[in-house]
Computed example of a mutant assay.
Amino acid sequence: MTGIRVSDLVALDRLDLDVSDLKGSLIVRLGKGNKEGTLPLNVEARRVIERYLEERTDSNPALFISSRQERISIRSVQYLLEKNGHNAHQTRHSFITGLVRAGEDISVIQSLSGHSSADMILRYSMPSEEDKQKAVDNIFKD
């Protein structure tokens, strides 16, 4: 999982992928606000993408293509996610919230998420009802 925006995902080309045995990344060339950035890939993401590309026999420069051998559309990605019980925005939100809750540095989260403002990251750090209950329960715990 990278937390990438769907619009950035569908714009990726094969040349935007840099993978080796030890590390990998995606280059987002024209993200929101025409910003470029690099997103690291974990080992599982690298394996899945490499397997996917090994199965492809076309010369389409797009990293992800549809069954019609064309660059996949935003709507197609949304449909595939929804078909499997996911929502693109919620998945991205979960990624960012997970980083916040893991105590990652705000500047790292901002860079990974492509947000231009740290204020946007603070929205993801809003405590849940469970967080508030846990805080109250732990007040006098020894």
Rank of each mutant, 00 (worst) to 15 (best):
L122D: 00
G85N: 11
T38W: 07
L17G: 03
T97M: 01
S20Y: 07
Y124L: 02
E54F: 03
A11N: 11
Q78L: 14
E54I: 08
N84T: 06
I72A: 04
V6M: 06
D21L: 11
S111F: 10
G37Q: 02
D105L: 12
E129V: 06
S59G: 02
H89N: 08
I96M: 03
R68H: 10
L17I: 05
K35E: 00
V48A: 01
T97E: 01
R56L: 05
I4W: 00
G37L: 00
Q133I: 14
K134T: 15
T57R: 15
H93W: 07
G31E: 01
E129P: 01
N84E: 15
R101W: 10
Q78F: 14
I27G: 05
E129I: 07
V136Q: 09
Q78E: 14
R56N: 04
R47V: 10
I96D: 08
E54A: 12
V6S: 06
R47W: 09
L80P: 08
K23H: 15
R5T: 03
I121D: 00
E82A: 12
N87T: 14
D21I: 10
V28I: 11
G24A: 03
I72M: 08
L9V: 05
D142I: 04
A11F: 01
K83R: 15
E104S: 12
S111A: 15
H89W: 09
L9I: 07
K23N: 13
L63D: 10
L63A: 00
T57Q: 15
S25I: 08
G98W: 02
D13C: 04
E36L: 02
G3S: 11
I65C: 05
D18S: 13
T2L: 07
L30A: 04
S94V: 03
F140M: 05
E54M: 10
S116K: 04
M120E: 00
E55G: 12
A62C: 04
L112N: 04
V77A: 09
I96F: 06
I65N: 12
A45Y: 09
T38Q: 11
S125F: 08
Y52C: 04
R101Y: 08
A11C: 04
S111I: 00
G37C: 03
F140V: 03
D21Q: 09
R68V: 07
A118W: 00
L26Q: 13
K23C: 09
Y124M: 01
D119W: 00
G85E: 10
I109N: 00
L39T: 02
D142V: 01
D131M: 14
E36S: 08
R29F: 09
E54T: 10
F140S: 05
Q133D: 10
D8R: 02
N84D: 14
Y79P: 01
N60F: 01
Y124I: 02
V100F: 01
L112P: 02
A102V: 06
D8M: 08
E36K: 07
A45G: 13
A62L: 07
E82C: 06
L26H: 13
K141N: 15
V28P: 11
